[in-house]
Simulated assay, not measured.
Amino acid sequence: MLFDTHAHLNAVQYEDDLIEVINRAKEEGVEKIVVVGFDRETIMRAMELIEQYEFIYAAIGWHPVDAIDMTDEDLNWIRELSSHPKVVAIGEMGLDYHWDKSPKDVQKEVFKKQIALAKEVKLPIIIHNRDATADVLEILQSEGAEEVGGIMHCFTGSIEIAMQCIDMNFYISLGGPVTFKNAKKPKEVAAEVPMERLLIETDCPYLTPHPFRGKRNEPGYVRYVAEEIAKLRGITVEEVGRQTTENAKKFFGIS
């Protein structure tokens, strides 16, 4: 029983073999998947997938790298789509200081607008953070994101930062990097973060776990994330699967 809380099955990388990818996920025990749309094209595809597959849900938002492209019309469109019963979160949103396509002030403005929207439509948020931890935390606090809560997607920070996020009503989601040999911080977080605040994800087609690193990622590989967490905590993979699936269903409001 596994729940991939962050997948991009709406990516072009799955155009030729999506059905096979989904079947493999099922074989690995993946029960539910949240597909994340982060611009016009990927949001539209995510909405198509939730109509096609009973066990797929959508999160819709605007990625910080593309913040400069987002219009008020886009925001209103996300607002309208958010009423769909299988849209379970707003995001991914946040800040990305690695790429310089969108100026920092524009990223911050778009981030704040999406938090306000999430509070308006009463949905939790999914956070993308790359090289911007201090500013991400400051905005989450100043904009009252605690009200809706959220996920720190593909978390790679320290256990101290993780606990700060949990105090703000956030869950910590771990992906493929936790399986990497030299991933000191993710392994510490996997071992120490409270189980009731832990989620697992693939972020596929990116961040493929060991032993498939360098190849295309897919939801079935979330099992390797669960196995690594189980090893680090000294519990069974079934326990990790059960608890993280329970956490995800509670977070997304899926019965």
Rank of each mutant, 00 (worst) to 15 (best):
F3E: 02
N10K: 03
N10V: 03
A11Y: 12
E20I: 04
E27A: 15
E28Y: 07
E31Q: 15
V34S: 02
V34A: 02
V34G: 02
G37H: 08
E41R: 14
M44D: 15
R45Y: 10
M47F: 04
I50D: 01
E51R: 13
W62C: 05
P64I: 05
I68Q: 09
T71D: 09
D74H: 08
W77K: 13
I78M: 10
S82R: 11
S82H: 11
S83W: 08
H84A: 12
P85Q: 10
D96K: 07
H98W: 14
W99F: 15
D100E: 15
K101E: 12
K104M: 12
Q114I: 07
K119R: 09
K119H: 01
E120W: 02
P124G: 06
P124A: 12
H128M: 13
R130H: 10
E138Q: 05
G144E: 01
E147G: 06
V148Y: 01
M152Q: 11
H153Y: 05
G157V: 00
I161R: 08
M163C: 00
Q164S: 08
M168V: 01
M168S: 01
F170E: 06
Y171F: 15
S173K: 04
G175W: 03
G175Q: 02
G175E: 06
T179W: 09
K181A: 02
K181F: 09
K185C: 09
E188D: 14
V189P: 01
V189D: 07
A191W: 06
R197Q: 07
I200E: 03
T202A: 08
C204G: 10
C204S: 12
P205D: 02
Y206R: 02
K215D: 03
R216C: 02
N217M: 01
P219H: 03
G220Y: 03
R223S: 05
Y224S: 04
A226D: 09
T236Y: 06
E239M: 12
N247F: 11
F252Y: 15
